[in-house]
Design a binder for these strands. Sequence first.
DNA 1: AGATCGCCCTGCTTGC
DNA 2: TGCAAGCAGGGCGATC
Length: 285
Amino acid sequence: MPELPEVEVCRRGLERWVGGRTVAGVEVLHARAVRRHLGGGEDFAARLKGHRFGVARRRGKYLWLPLEDAGAAVLGHLGMSGQLLVQPEGAEDEKHLRIRIRFDDALGTELRFVDQRTFGGLSLHDTTPDGLPDVIGHIARDPLDEGFDDAAFHAALRRKTTTIKRALLDQSLVSGVGNIYADEALWRSRLHYERPTATFTRPRSYELLGHVRDVMNAALEVGGTSFDSLYVNVNGESGYFDRSLDAYGREGEPCRRCGTPIRRRPWMNRSSYYCPRCQRAPRAA
DNA sequence: AGATCGCCCTGCTTGC
DNA sequence: TGCAAGCAGGGCGATC
């Protein structure tokens, strides 16, 4: 379950191992992996061939490889279980290999999109003048992005009629926050997931953003060591999940602040983990 | 038009 | 032991 830090590690790997290389051929092995490419797998392959990749970029959990001089980019999302791997050309196919991209050079490696649950995929899109694929114009910057506007985020919270965890997962307000990091940041902020966003004061919004950044930076430090190898490893096994989680997945275990057992509650076809003592439910829940 | 929620998918775990 | 249900969840799009 790659969250933003894992996607950023993946982007760095793409930048290092795939940037500047020219596509020799593309194999689409599973149609669902290119479902966002409206022209289908054959069109995807045909339109990539012969083009050179530029510098990999990322916004939220989306990442993309610009095609130089084409005004287009290959957009990728890892979904739940996606991986982008740089493998030796002769290496055995992974069980869930969905897309293979070969290159027109002598480096001896190819790019593979591997995805068990097929929530992720690749697609080709025109880019806007600022280089963004046109279909992700609605995705906000992430809190680690220098261009993220804290004041605008707070104003948006005040404007919305919703609750804080929904807002954290709303990629048009802030990107890169998934279910795990939302629960972690809320625990650190001592905020209940159902707190209405309209009640947020500016200091409270800023404190929450600070905790979101801390959670992401901590994971980035742990996961950021694995990209400096042949493999662009983004499978979420950063080690961060086992060692450093305070709320997510800890149902029944003692809160690290007060010792109260952490609770799990069904929420939006998912789960919310929280400390019932540190994170009190709002009065009008 | 803003807010909410069902659904897509596969493999592991749990329970009867 | 075998089968079914539960669970994981990002984001699109239908619905209210």
